[in-house]
């Protein structure tokens, strides 16, 4: 699927809704996983995979494809759902999340899942991996771009800032970081655990182009991705304000839904809210 051909805003919203449903079903079946951060990232993942990124699902190793690194690896259910819907593998695999022998590991494993560009799960490493990819893209004179999705808690990790400084040094305009800024980490809010604001200033002090958007507003997401694409002087970070557990009222902004699977009853209630 080439960039921009894909879908209008309404159909993207519909896909995001489906990815949310898929994610919750998968996590429920697995009996474990991270629903909150999957739901918060659903619109961003949709915009990237179904609109912005240049991909060929029938050729997962296409050298000119855009790359995606899910640095917040625990949010992988929503990514697996997107890859399945794009045809990288049979959607039936979604039922095997986290089960022994599955291609869908608890955290992303590039050697097991078709379409995955990187192995992640230990927070703080993805931006560095993406930076390596971006530099090689430039060296190889390929036009691909690299997208790295970071969690907000992950910004506590010093390695993120090592990568930020280095990416600015190399002015890698083909690298875009997207922060799923749901403002909750495992033990509490960002402000309680380790405050991040003023976040744009921080990224700008590393010479990054910084944008802030509502990460559930599809047109705003698409606009920001376009702006990042058009910014040619260096890397861009999109600080996307999101809501953890977005789309399911009893999960929204609830710390407790960081890493707990819904039971059958809760899944049912969630699916009712998300619609048929």
């Amino acid at each position: 699927m080439a960039r921009g051909q894909a879908h209008d805003v309404d159909s993207l919203r519909e896909i995001a809704r489906q990815l949310r449903i898929d994610s919750l079903r998968m996590i429920h079946l697995a009996g474990g996983g991270h629903p909150g951060g999957s739901l918060s990232a659903a619109d961003l993942v949709t915009a990237l995979y179904f609109h912005e990124m240049n991909l060929r699902s029938e050729e997962p190793d296409w050298p000119d494809r855009d790359r995606f690194v899910l640095s917040k690896g625990h949010g992988c259910p929503v990514l697996y759902a997107a890859l399945a819907r794009l045809g990288y593998f049979d959607p039936q695999h979604l039922d095997t999340l986290r089960k022994f022998g599955t291609i869908l590991q608890g955290h992303p494993d590039m050697n097991k899942t078709p379409g995955l560009d990187a192995t992640t799960g230990s927070l703080g490493q993805g931006l560095s991996v993406g930076l390596g990819m971006a530099l090689i893209g430039r060296l190889d004179r390929r036009a691909y771009r690299v997208f790295v999705m970071l969690g907000c808690g992950e910004l506590d990790e010093g390695q993120v800032w090592e990568a930020a400084m280095c990416a600015a040094k190399y002015r890698v305009a083909n690298l875009t970081a997207v922060i799923d800024y749901n403002q909750l980490q495992l033990d509490g809010t960002n402000d309680e655990i380790m405050p991040l604001e003023p976040l744009e200033d921080k990224w700008r002090s590393f010479n990054w182009n910084a944008l802030r958007i509502d990460g559930h507003d599809m047109p705003a997401i698409l606009d920001a991705l376009r702006a990042a694409r058009e910014h040619e002087q260096g890397p861009t970070v999109i600080i996307a304000k999101t809501i953890k557990g977005k789309g399911v009222s009893f999960m929204e902004d609830q710390l407790d839904w960081h890493g707990v699977a819904p039971n059958a009853e809760q899944l049912e209630a969630a699916l009712v809210e998300l619609g048929p």
Partner: peptide
């Protein structure tokens, strides 16, 4: 930590 996979 089992289902969380080898990273953890």
């Amino acid at each position: 930590t089992a289902e969380n996979g080898p990273t953890h």
